[in-house]
Write a protein that binds this DNA or RNA. Sequence first.
DNA 1: ATGAAAGCGCTAACAC
DNA 2: GTGTTAGCGCTTTCAT
Lengths: 365, 365
Amino acid sequence: MTRESGDGRKRSRQADQAVSPNSGSPRKAGGLKEVAARAGTSIPTASRVLNGLGDEYRISRRTQELVRNAAKELSFSPNLLAKSLRLGSTRTIGLVLPDVGNPFFAAIARAVSIEAHARGYSVVLCDSGDDTGREVELLEVIMNRRPDGLVVVPVGQKCSHLQRFESSDTPLVLVDRSFAELRLPSITSDNRQGARDAVDHLIECGHSNVACLRGLAGTTPNELRVQGYREALEAHGIAFDERLVCGDGFGKEAGRRAARALLDSGVRFTAVFALSNLIGIAALELLLEAGRRVPEDVSLLSFDEQPYSSVLAVPMSTVRQDPAEMGRLAVAMVCDRIGKPGAAMPASVVVPTALVTRRSVAVHP
Amino acid sequence: MTRESGDGRKRSRQADQAVSPNSGSPRKAGGLKEVAARAGTSIPTASRVLNGLGDEYRISRRTQELVRNAAKELSFSPNLLAKSLRLGSTRTIGLVLPDVGNPFFAAIARAVSIEAHARGYSVVLCDSGDDTGREVELLEVIMNRRPDGLVVVPVGQKCSHLQRFESSDTPLVLVDRSFAELRLPSITSDNRQGARDAVDHLIECGHSNVACLRGLAGTTPNELRVQGYREALEAHGIAFDERLVCGDGFGKEAGRRAARALLDSGVRFTAVFALSNLIGIAALELLLEAGRRVPEDVSLLSFDEQPYSSVLAVPMSTVRQDPAEMGRLAVAMVCDRIGKPGAAMPASVVVPTALVTRRSVAVHP
DNA sequence: ATGAAAGCGCTAACAC
DNA sequence: GTGTTAGCGCTTTCAT
């Protein structure tokens, strides 16, 4: 079956459009003008009916029928561009992420997308690739499309480009990371407590030399997790040893480098706390390659629960976050603020984490 | 610091806007009108300059300067809605996926997003949640936003809602899955060959009883992988045994059910071929729970290479796909077709897969 | 070298 | 009950 076999659809289309919309099947989606023409009404009348204002405007049942039928027959497709331009509202939410490929952010993206559509919004997705420069660019591009709201997982330390949103008509909600110097609402995990719980657990299992494999310096999740780590040590009267803290990145490669540095440093440690799923994997991989048994020689506990956490070389104890809930909440918060320019900034939300214990942590003699 | 401490920005804005744009800092982004006013030119002139048509229209250097400065000072933000409406082009690509949470689709989403932005397009993301009904709805909603092109990873068997795109001004490219009855270009993995290679490998390792844990019935990736599986058996003179084929879904839960069914059936098998990453994980989990040693008792090979593949309970042999390349190609293909309504449908592209061998497959005596 | 006018598809204010 | 008019912010003839 070749393309030409399509029974002349293409050829007939032009005629349909220009002269009369009388063809049997709804070939090409029509706009309000075509619908009005076919229904024999004016354009505003058709508009009112199709927006459910028929009764309010006391348009006769008959006319309403006519319009609705015409719309169906022409498979009416409202031009949301025109509507948005007129209404000053696009029913669109901009989403800026460091990397949709990362399962944690992917889960956020999914929740945002689903929740947004449930509320009648579409989502414009931007991947900043963990690059602040790109983030700035993307934010600009996306603002030119006049979204009704923004959900942003910012990257890096720079946040001057977000200042304008402190007093903007476009509500913005930060997710996963936040900035102390910015009065913007955020949805974050309870990173400090999550880390605190994790390291408490390690210490209670008898580990007093706990290494920490960090994520990207300067980001709130990283700093707060490190803080939780330090607090746990302190609470148990263990001195902080900076030689036990390595790494500068949440990715797998950064994780490998960090783990290698730790190993090469020769410092003694019996447990490792990895600050992301990918760092955890990298650590496990490298430890095993180096001939260390987990958890007999060294225990391992990682941030981020994943579908595969239970079936790793050694089933991993993790700190579970709830990215889906975070995405959902972010959209809810943005939507609540849309159309209320003067409203007070909502309070930031901290989503609790949960410790999942498996076999990667051993009780130390 | 409360919200009111913002030095009266909000109050001063109205005045700025109505009277003169003379305030020092560029508080509020301005449109073409404001720029023209500040530059002392007409709106069309400002438009031409800012679209790089200044020289073409022989607008004086001085005026051009004036306009550009005004644009900078007001931090000009072109209203893309108005522009799109006028131009009949939104520079937007619609992306419809079954589940951004799945790392395979997430990788596609990432590639699409990055490639699209590199070409000056924005991406509208829709998550169909593996539900055909939602897919239909989303496609409608998204079309109302008049995207210049569409990238779709369709779900399920139904494809009548995609027929209109065989002869639509909006180019559509299918990714991962395709439909024999549809004349639409697609980008897919070489599923048949990938499966063929995998099962050939298993057989060459001495396995003649190879079970197959299927994905969603009726989808091309699933059917082609099963076909590759059967071809491999046939090529080696092994009879197909349908009791060895279980499952109906690509997710982890479906995978667990399939693996359990296989185990419970009591059929003898020494190797399992899992048709997705999540099925692979589920199978590994269940096999281990059931006390089977992998690969000593049963070998395992799964579709989809992942960052954790090497560090699973037993390092997994996999069939690697290239979702990033698929997403990139899809965008390239869509963009090439934008604005060429009459152009011939491009040929579909099949992206090769690669077999990655690890320890989950044992050479059978 | 630049401006005036029309129009993209829609909705809201105001007629009658 | 329904139509007319104006305008959202832009680009594009066409005129000067």
